[in-house]
């Protein structure tokens, strides 16, 4: 990596990266209450990666880490889906909704009161898909950035 943008861009990046990541985590974790979800939150987190790569242009090689996170997210998502098949009725059956425990609270019928400890397997699946999407899009950006740096451009 051999480019680096100006100090203004780098300072704004330093200020903005943390709120963007926090907003992405909010979108993922509150996916069963407000608009958003795993894919949207993961894409927002990956956009913070894009900001960092474009502003600084130098990074360590995180290919193995990101690839592992992506595979772990997808595997846990499929395991959750299959748990619905074995513990409930069908694949993707929401077996832990309303049974107490983690995310097992009940929801009153009607207007959204905003209880976060509800939803059964839906928030867990949101988190898994969010991990998978964030790692996958970050990995694509990282590989594209590295490849664009190693190409010789004819003038």
């Amino acid at each position: 990596m051999n480019w680096e943008m100006s100090k203004i861009v780098r300072t704004v990046t330093d200020i903005m990266v943390v709120p963007i990541i926090v907003y992405g985590i909010y979108l993922i974790v509150h996916g069963h209450l407000t608009p958003g979800g795993g894919f949207q939150g993961g894409a927002v987190i990956a956009s913070s990666t894009a900001l960092l790569i474009i502003a600084y242009g130098s990074f360590r090689d995180h290919k193995a880490d990101l690839s592992s996170i992506e595979s772990i997210g997808l595997t846990l998502f499929i395991i959750l889906a299959l748990l619905g098949l074995f513990l409930g009725a069908t694949m993707f059956h929401n077996y832990s909704a309303g049974t107490g425990g983690l995310f097992g609270g009940t929801v009153p019928q009607g207007i959204n009161p905003g209880y976060i400890n509800t939803g059964g397997t839906v928030p867990l699946m949101n988190i898994m898909v969010g991990l998978e999407v964030a790692a996958a899009l970050s990995l694509i950006l990282l590989m594209m950035g590295k490849a664009s740096d190693s190409v010789e451009v004819e003038a």
Binding site: T34, G37, N94, A97, T106, T118, G119
Partner: peptide, 15 residues
């Protein structure tokens, strides 16, 4: 009542 989820879009997407 099925999923105990308030966001129906998420309920459709993940269940």
């Amino acid at each position: 009542s099925h999923n105990q989820v308030n966001n129906i879009v998420t309920a459709i997407l993940f269940d």
